[in-house]
Amino acid sequence: MKKKKKHKSLVMTNKMFWFAVPAFLMYFTFWIFPVFQLFRYSITNFNGINRNYDMVGFKNYITLYKEGTLFHAIPNTIIYAVVLVAVSNIIALALALLLNANIKGKGIYRTAAYLPTLFSAIVIGFIWSYVYMPGNGMIATIMDSLGMDGSKFNILAGFKSALYAIIAVDIWKCIGTTMIIYLAGLQTIDSSLIEAGKIDGCNGWQMIRLIKVPLISATITINVILSVINGLKAYDYVFIMTNGGPGKATNTLMYSVYKLAFTEQLMGKSAALSVVAFILIIAVTICMLIFMNKREVEM
């Protein structure tokens, strides 16, 4: 009873923190602590199984640098993230603006755009392997029937095209969610502001550019941040559809981390690459948060 006087509120006491203990313990043990472990493993020659490993200093980092793993994995990941963020957000926002208009059959279009989101990445990988397949695949067959030479179509084998082909799959999958979030944002706009715009003589495009988009800047921020995080984690379709190939053209950071650890059993090296990736991800996130916060205030 004496203790209670110390708190500001009798109802909301610090005892509440006990509620967070199970989640905290679990989250710390299986998510945050392992990240710190990575820093330790990155200076060893640990192979992932044998616990008798030696400290090797910065050797892992130096090999990564010398072999050039960094120089294709980092640019690939950044291209992946940038293209994914730009294209998926522009298409999703455009779709949401169209669907927000008062038209019939809205629900059907929304369902169509959302459906790909429900499939597992592994299933999507299979379906798109068929779509991109040279010779018998969907795109090749359509090209044939249109009189173009479909037999030359082999997008996943091209050094320049493979990465973009994979990004396209990811865009196809994630537009649904992004669009739904934009749609929800658009529906929060006060209709009196739209009316005011109409009275002032805004045409459709001005309405979008000067009223609707600025008013959903918070939604844009969230969607952009979510897709950047998604893009930097790019792994699924590389693993299922190309295995990083042709050559190293589609090797992303996370796929390289996985491959070093599981296929080549070089856990030390994989951990070193993880540390590099971790620093990159943190740097990008912080820059983005600062930039986005500034923009939102300006708007």
Partner: peptide
């Protein structure tokens, strides 16, 4: 809790297996 959102699963999977 929010900060963990940016950590990819492929990165921590081996330390987690060790855990």
């Amino acid at each position: 809790f929010i900060a963990g959102l940016v950590i990819p699963a492929q990165m921590v999977i081996i330390p987690v297996a060790q855990m």
